[in-house]
């Protein structure tokens, strides 16, 4: 944890609420890519490693990983209040928007231009998620064994559509063993 010379800023509860509200509303293609960008790159509240570790824990607990991560980040900085404010803001804005979209879709979903715009947007969002995974990998510089674990997770879940509990529970022991080896070697 002692990897930087400059102290990291600590958010106030309002910061946390507003920032997670923003992450929710700009979070196209899922939250995780944007949460990393805002929390690590823009606000510098967490390091890349800390964010990825929080996400890793959120991934193993049941429930959406983005939500679990938001609860843990909120709790980390402001306890119970933070654990409510961060996910509340992250879900609140998009829910209002989604209710509006559902109404709009019921009325105009069959209009060709609406369909075309949605198709283009979905294609770009998919690339954004892939690009984020590539960027995270590049920044984390995983040693070969850990890289292999990540690639197997990608192929198992993305290509063979192995159910997620199997992917995570099956790979976790190997990831942990590899991490143990890497950290011992240091």
């Amino acid at each position: 944890m002692s990897e930087t010379d400059t102290p990291r800023p600590v958010p106030t509860l309002l910061d946390l609420f507003l920032t997670y509200g923003k992450i929710g509303l700009i979070g196209f293609g899922g939250i995780n890519a944007w949460a990393r960008r805002v929390l690590v790159e823009e606000k510098r509240w967490l390091t890349d490693q800390e964010y990825a570790e929080t996400l890793g824990l959120g991934q193993v607990l049941p429930g959406p990983n983005a939500l679990n991560a938001a609860i843990m980040v909120g709790d980390r900085f402001h306890g119970t209040a933070g654990a409510i404010a961060a996910p509340g803001a992250m879900f609140g804005g998009p829910l209002v928007l989604l209710a509006g979209l559902a109404t709009f879709y019921d009325a105009y979903g069959e209009v060709p231009i609406v369909k075309a715009i949605l198709a283009g947007l979905a294609a770009a969002a998919a690339g954004m998620v892939i690009g984020t995974a590539a960027k995270m990998t590049q920044k984390l510089k995983p040693p070969p064994a850990l890289l292999a674990v990540g690639l197997i997770a990608l192929v198992a879940a993305g290509v063979f559509r192995v159910p997620l509990p199997w992917v995570v529970l099956g790979l976790a022991p190997f990831g942990i063993l590899a991490a143990r080896h890497v950290m011992r070697a240091k």
């Binding site: 490693q49 892939i130 997770a153 995570v168 976790a172 190997f174």
Partner: peptide, 23 residues
């Protein structure tokens, strides 16, 4: 910390898998 570190690549792999499925 070891457990967390070991889970990181799985999380990243799954994000990539999501991207693939979305694509």
């Amino acid at each position: 910390r070891i457990a967390e570190r070991g889970l990181v690549p799985i999380a990243v792999g799954l994000i990539a898998a999501s991207g693939l499925i979305l694509a």
